[in-house]
């Protein structure tokens, strides 16, 4: 009596192995899909930008004539925005992280704040825009100024910095703290002189990532009512401003009316992507250069 029919086994094995091979390429194709889309997107932006992105475009003010239009106002506005978001998120984020990691007792309050931060990370950005519109623009009367936009953005990206700073602080080894305590340092002295310096690369990386999220966010600015018109270039935190993503938004919408606006939008996108690329490079360099192993 035959227990194993070799022919059947061989036949089945062949198909099984064949399917396995075919599906492998299917999975590979799916993975490459993202790559291809990225390539098409970048090609599209480059192709539309050619001839439009030059020094004049960076230094000119806004204009209704596409040939004369520039994004000096938007670039300055975005820089002002970052000037608020950077310090504010860093102070709030690191403060929160230090409190949660070093001071708070693991209990109800700790898990409440932690859960709250996790939930905030999932709230749609447009809802933050409404919060900013109600609290900063209307109630506190900041109007559509840099400070209103900056504070709204800061709250939006706060969870990113908190989580990054928490991880950085957690990865500072315990013996460094113990050595500091052993020398007679107090808790705050230890945190200030030992823990934070050791965690700084991680904190900076997180802050840069948060900034690069804030720099491209559009929805909250739209909700706040930030214009993309010819307005004076901001020179302080209470001035009105416009930002790169707002400029892209309006030029994309208006490309239906004036074809050249699509080129202007593409050129602005390229500027934005270059800024993002530089920021991320800095973050990666920071991470690699200061990554200490204890």
């Amino acid at each position: 009596m035959k227990y194993i029919d070799l022919d059947t086994v061989n036949k089945r094995m062949t198909t099984r192995i064949l399917i396995n091979k075919l599906v492998k390429y299917l999975f590979l194709a799916a993975t490459l899909f993202g790559l291809i889309v990225l390539a098409v997107l970048l090609y599209r932006v480059f192709a539309d930008t050619i001839g439009w992105l030059n020094l004049d475009f960076l230094t000119n003010r806004l204009s209704t004539i596409p040939e004369n239009a520039g994004i000096k106002g938007a670039i300055t506005g975005t820089l002002w925005l970052m000037l608020i978001v950077g310090p504010v998120t860093m102070i709030l984020g690191v403060g929160t992280a230090v409190y949660l990691e070093e001071y708070a007792k693991r209990g109800r309050l700790h898990s409440f704040i932690q859960t709250n931060i996790n939930n905030l990370a999932g709230v749609p950005s447009i809802v933050f825009g409404l919060l900013g519109l109600t609290v900063f623009v209307r109630v506190l009367g900041f109007g559509t100024s840099v400070i209103a936009g900056g504070l709204t953005m800061s709250l939006l990206v706060l969870p990113i910095v908190v989580v990054a700073a928490q991880e950085a602080i957690r990865s500072v080894p315990g013996f460094l703290r113990e050595a500091s305590f052993g020398m007679g340092a107090t808790k705050w002295q230890t945190i200030k002189n030992i823990v934070l310096p050791a965690a700084l690369p991680g904190i900076l990386t997180g802050t840069i990532l948060a900034l690069s999220r804030a720099i491209g966010e559009t929805a909250p600015l739209v909700a706040l009512g930030i214009p993309a018109l010819l307005i004076p270039i901001p020179s302080g935190i209470f001035d009105n401003f416009t930002a790169l993503p707002m400029q892209i938004y309006y030029w994309t919408l208006d490309s239906v009316l004036v074809d050249e606006y699509a080129n202007l939008a593409a050129a602005t996108i390229l500027v934005l992507l270059i800024i993002l690329f530089l920021m991320n490079s800095v973050a990666i360099i920071l991470r690699n250069k200061f990554q200490k192993r204890y």
């Binding site: 599209r44 966010e217 993002l276």
Partner: peptide, 10 residues
């Protein structure tokens, strides 16, 4: 990491 506004344009 690409901003959503860029996807909108695309």
């Amino acid at each position: 990491g690409i901003p959503t506004i860029v996807y909108g344009f695309f």
